[in-house]
C-alpha cells in the first residue's frame, strides 16, 4: 500500500503535494467556518467533539516531538527534555500565563542541561 502511495506523491511533485495534502485539507475548515458562521451554534455537540479530537491530535503530536525528537534534540536525554518542559510549565503558571516566560525558562533549562549533562 505504501509503495503505490509514494509513487503517486512523487508524480505530483513537491509543490502540488503541499497544496493538495497540506493546504486544502486545512483551508476546508476555514471556508466552512466562514460559510457556517451565524448558522450553527458553537455549543453544539458536534463542535465540542470536533474541538476535542483536534486538541487530542495536536497534544499527541506535541508529546511525540518531545519523546521521539529528531536531530540535535535527540542527543539530550529524555529525563532532561521532560524536566525542561515541566520547568517551562511552572514558569508559565507562575508568571500568570505569560507565554514568553514559559518558553524562556524551559529553553534556559535545556541549554543548561546540555552543558552540565
Amino acid at each position: 500500500m505504501i509503495p503505490a502511495e509514494d509513487l503517486s506523491l512523487a508524480a505530483l511533485g513537491p509543490y502540488l503535494t503541499i497544496l493538495l495534502v497540506a493546504a486544502v485539507p486545512t483551508h476546508v475548515w476555514r471556508w466552512l467556518g466562514v460559510l457556517f458562521a451565524g448558522r450553527l451554534s458553537e455549543d453544539s455537540e458536534i463542535f465540542r467533539w470536533i474541538k476535542s479530537v483536534a486538541t487530542a491530535l495536536v497534544s499527541g503530536l506535541i508529546a511525540q516531538l518531545i519523546f521521539f525528537p529528531k536531530g540535535a534534540l535527540a542527543d539530550v536525554p529524555l529525563s532532561f527534555r521532560l524536566a525542561s518542559v515541566l520547568l517551562g510549565i511552572a514558569a508559565y503558571l507562575a508568571s500568570r500565563r505569560n507565554l514568553a516566560a514559559g518558553i524562556v525558562a524551559a529553553e534556559a533549562a535545556l541549554v543548561a542541561a546540555w552543558f552540565v549533562g
Binding site: L9, V21, P25, R30, G33, V34, G38, L40, E42, L57
Partner: peptide, 30 residues
C-alpha cells in the same frame, strides 16, 4: 512525510489537526 505516511493518512492527519478552524472562524466572522 518524514515517518513515511502515505498521502491519504497525511491528508487526514493534517485535516484533523486543523479542525479547530471551524469553530474559530465561526466566531471570527461575527
Amino acid at each position: 512525510l518524514a515517518s513515511g505516511s502515505g498521502w491519504i493518512a497525511t491528508m487526514l492527519a493534517v485535516s484533523l489537526s486543523s479542525m479547530r478552524f471551524l469553530p474559530m472562524l465561526m466566531s471570527w466572522v461575527p
